[in-house]
Computed example of a mutant assay.
Amino acid sequence: MNEVISSTIQSPAQGLQAVWGWFDVSQDDRARVSDLLPLAEQNIEAILQDFYSRDGGYDHPSGEGAASGMQKVKDEQRRHLLELFDAGLDQKYFEGRKSAGIFNENYGISPSFYLSLYTFAINRICDLIREHTKDGAEAETVQKALRKTAACHQAITIEAFSAARSEAIEQRERQMSELPTPALRLQEGLLLVPVVGVLDSHRSRLLTMQILDAIRDQNARVVVLDITGVAAVDSMVANHLIQTMTATRLMGAQSVLTGISAEVAQALVKIGVSDDALNPAGDLERGVETARKLLER
């Protein structure tokens, strides 16, 4: 099942065919929706204006650049809505859905807001279909085709939105993992190493090397390793921390671990780490006090 779902993003030719089938969108449905394009083009401006002018419908931004930013959002939304009526199964359509998802992510447009606009627009166009179609049965058939196609269209965009968000998060995590970790000399023999950001296995290994080099270069006897700024530590990274502190002792220095969160404490307990191995202190201030006492011994 996961392979089929992921194919909607990675393999447009096969994936989009499958998605159309999931939503029961037939070739006739797509033809009916395509015939609605002139009607949509004639009314899209009024639909967008009505959507944004509703009381409580939108919290209009303020400040420098807000107007131009909103105009760009509306221009993109107009394009994305009209793409619904010319939905093919080719690379162009796939790229359009991916572009919509990435745009929403970059401009902070939530899936809920995106879906609310589409729901509003589709309801308005269904109203127009009823007004312009004399045959009630045919109007009902066209509306049904539009709603099925719109649901499929939205689903693909939301999936692209999700992929774009995951990619953005991974990119930020990579950037955070590449942040340098300084070894600060608080006084003779005492180093402070504040760690901020994502502490994955790769960065943990680099951190160990940096600490050991700093101990050697500055003749440090105690190192305070502060992980207050680390968002999450899993069992593997916790193991790296223990290895780092063990390597510190082998270099002739003692270490103090500060800034341990509840999540980090649980990760350390899971791998059977005791207080003796960590020499922990609740916060940085107490950690520095502990380190200075160790220097006096």
Results as ranks from 00 to 15, higher is better:
residue 1 M to G: 09
residue 2 N to C: 03
residue 2 N to A: 05
residue 4 V to E: 15
residue 6 S to P: 02
residue 8 T to I: 05
residue 8 T to A: 09
residue 9 I to S: 05
residue 9 I to T: 10
residue 9 I to Y: 08
residue 9 I to P: 02
residue 9 I to H: 10
residue 10 Q to T: 12
residue 12 P to K: 10
residue 12 P to N: 12
residue 22 W to F: 13
residue 24 D to Y: 06
residue 25 V to T: 00
residue 26 S to M: 09
residue 32 R to T: 00
residue 36 L to Y: 01
residue 41 E to Q: 13
residue 42 Q to P: 02
residue 42 Q to V: 03
residue 43 N to T: 11
residue 44 I to Y: 00
residue 54 R to V: 00
residue 59 D to H: 02
residue 60 H to N: 05
residue 63 G to T: 07
residue 65 G to R: 12
residue 66 A to Y: 12
residue 67 A to I: 07
residue 74 K to G: 01
residue 74 K to Y: 01
residue 75 D to A: 14
residue 75 D to M: 11
residue 76 E to D: 09
residue 77 Q to I: 08
residue 80 H to N: 12
residue 80 H to T: 09
residue 82 L to A: 06
residue 84 L to N: 07
residue 88 G to R: 05
residue 92 K to A: 14
residue 93 Y to I: 06
residue 95 E to Y: 01
residue 97 R to I: 11
residue 98 K to H: 10
residue 107 Y to L: 06
residue 109 I to E: 07
residue 113 F to W: 06
residue 113 F to V: 09
residue 114 Y to T: 04
residue 118 Y to R: 14
residue 120 F to E: 01
residue 121 A to I: 10
residue 122 I to Y: 06
residue 124 R to S: 15
residue 126 C to L: 14
residue 128 L to E: 10
residue 128 L to M: 15
residue 133 T to W: 05
residue 133 T to V: 06
residue 134 K to M: 11
residue 135 D to Q: 10
residue 135 D to M: 02
residue 136 G to V: 09
residue 137 A to Q: 08
residue 138 E to F: 03
residue 140 E to I: 07
residue 141 T to F: 07
residue 144 K to C: 04
residue 144 K to D: 07
residue 145 A to P: 00
residue 146 L to N: 00
residue 146 L to T: 04
residue 148 K to F: 04
residue 148 K to S: 04
residue 153 H to S: 13
residue 155 A to R: 07
residue 160 A to D: 01
residue 160 A to P: 00
residue 160 A to R: 02
residue 160 A to K: 00
residue 164 A to P: 02
residue 168 A to N: 08
residue 168 A to D: 08
residue 174 R to P: 01
residue 175 Q to I: 14
residue 175 Q to D: 14
residue 180 P to H: 14
residue 182 P to Q: 11
residue 185 R to P: 15
residue 187 Q to N: 08
residue 188 E to R: 11
residue 191 L to Q: 09
residue 192 L to W: 08
residue 193 V to S: 04
residue 194 P to R: 13
residue 194 P to T: 04
residue 195 V to E: 13
residue 196 V to N: 03
residue 199 L to K: 11
residue 201 S to E: 14
residue 202 H to C: 02
residue 205 R to T: 11
residue 207 L to G: 10
residue 207 L to S: 04
residue 212 L to Y: 15
residue 213 D to K: 13
residue 214 A to P: 01
residue 215 I to E: 02
residue 215 I to N: 02
residue 218 Q to H: 15
residue 219 N to C: 10
residue 221 R to A: 05
residue 221 R to S: 05
residue 224 V to D: 03
residue 224 V to L: 05
residue 225 L to W: 10
residue 226 D to G: 11
residue 231 A to V: 05
residue 236 M to Q: 13
residue 239 N to Y: 01
residue 240 H to C: 07
residue 242 I to S: 12
residue 245 M to V: 08
residue 248 T to D: 01
residue 250 L to A: 03
residue 255 S to M: 07
residue 256 V to T: 05
residue 257 L to A: 06
residue 262 A to N: 08
residue 263 E to I: 04
residue 263 E to W: 04
residue 264 V to R: 06
residue 265 A to S: 13
residue 265 A to Y: 11
residue 269 V to N: 08
residue 271 I to F: 06
residue 272 G to F: 14
residue 273 V to W: 05
residue 273 V to T: 10
residue 279 N to D: 06
residue 285 E to A: 10
residue 292 R to Y: 04
residue 293 K to H: 11
residue 294 L to M: 13
residue 296 E to S: 14
